[in-house]
């Protein structure tokens, strides 16, 4: 048995987990419709998990279990106890696809929509899905939700990078078709882009994410930059352990956010710096990681580029990062060397 599978087998045996979500937390998010930060409740529902499960960097599907639809509603109730008193955004993530029948049935979806409608405090519902599960029926299931956002993990607009290095299993055309459908139904699209897939140099990764943002902007109201981090029991982890991979520099994240925002002021640019400052997450030299991470978080809720101005967050290690971009043509993957 593959070591990954072994790990998740062990995990599945714990039946109690089926009744609780993987995680849920309160945070702030930028509410694009009213152009202001508001509270946000994120719930990671435990489901049977992603049907694809083949993406190089992804280990989320290890959190899946033999969950029934009833379990899902229990999880939901459980997590909504943490609802804030004020208005808030509700994010339902499943470590897979919210629109996949196998994970969330049509009935469950309708029930969730009904619940969102009833609770006046919920201003917006955000769900995630792979594009192949986006269909008229499924979007219709959620028609009662006033502000619905469907998030799709495109990762990059470049089909070669997506298929070879991420192994995502769908094309840019699949994404476009799905997004157009979502937009037609009056919902918005949030597009996830991955900063630094494996086998791309720092510079190529940065260029790719900026270019991708340009190409997805017409379909997206929000672009969320995922700063690639190394999850356990993934193919990426193997590469990272053997020094074939280094997560992106936080400087690249700052640069990408600025460039994307500058090109299109209307698009909301977010980036949750998960694992920032750790070896497995996006990191700089170790001295400046915290302040750069905080600046990015501040930008997320304000969408104000001035918080990312270099003068406020600069560090000596920017020289190193800069050199890596400058020397890119002659590094041939050697930029992974400069771990800290």
């Amino acid at each position: 048995m593959h070591p990954y599978a072994k790990h998740s087998e062990k995990y599945k045996k714990n039946k109690n987990k089926n009744k609780t979500p993987v995680a849920s937390w309160l945070d702030y998010d930028f509410f694009a419709e009213e152009q202001k930060p508001i509270k946000c409740l994120t719930v990671i529902l435990r489901t049977v998990g992603c049907r694809w499960r083949k993406c190089t960097p992804c280990g989320y599907w290890h959190e899946s279990a033999d969950v029934t639809q009833e379990n899902i509603l229990t999880q939901l109730e459980h997590s909504l106890r943490n609802s804030p008193e004020e208005d808030f955004i509700l994010k339902f993530f499943t470590s897979g696809s919210f629109l996949d029948e196998r994970e969330i049935s049509s009935d469950t979806r309708k029930e969730i929509a009904e619940m969102v409608k009833k609770r006046k405090g919920i201003k917006k519902l955000i769900v995630e899905t792979r594009p192949e599960f986006v269909s008229e029926d499924k979007v219709t299931d959620l028609k009662n939700v006033e502000h619905l956002e469907v998030a799709i993990g495109l990762e990059t607009a470049n089909d070669l990078i997506r298929s070879n290095y991420i192994n995502k299993g769908f094309s840019f055309d699949d994404y476009r078709t799905a997004s157009e459908l979502v937009n037609e139904y009056g919902a918005t699209v949030k597009t996830y882009l991955l900063l630094k897939p494996p086998f791309l140099s720092e510079k190529r990764a940065l260029e790719d994410v900026i270019k991708s943002a340009e190409l997805v902007a017409p379909y997206s109201s929000t672009i969320s930059l995922n700063l690639c981090n190394v999850q356990k029991y993934t193919r990426l982890e193997e590469l990272w352990k053997r020094k074939y991979y280094r997560p992106p520099w936080l400087w690249s994240a700052v640069e990408a956010i600025k460039e994307i925002k500058k090109r299109d002021e209307n698009v909301v640019v977010m980036s949750d710096p998960v694992g920032a400052g750790y070896r497995r997450g996006p990191h700089n030299c170790g001295k400046c990681d915290f302040r750069v991470k905080e600046a990015i978080k501040k930008f997320n809720v304000t969408q104000n580029l001035s918080v990312l101005e270099i003068e406020g967050i600069d560090c000596e290690c920017r020289e190193v990062w800069h050199a890596l971009l400058k020397f890119d043509a002659f590094l041939f993957g050697g930029d992974n060397l400069f771990l800290r």
């Binding site: 053997r242 041939f332 993957g333």
Partner: peptide
């Protein structure tokens, strides 16, 4: 020829 991803050599003496 250029040996790409040479950094992986530093992973272990065997590599």
């Amino acid at each position: 020829f250029v040996l790409s991803f040479a950094c992986s050599m530093l992973n272990s003496p065997r590599d």
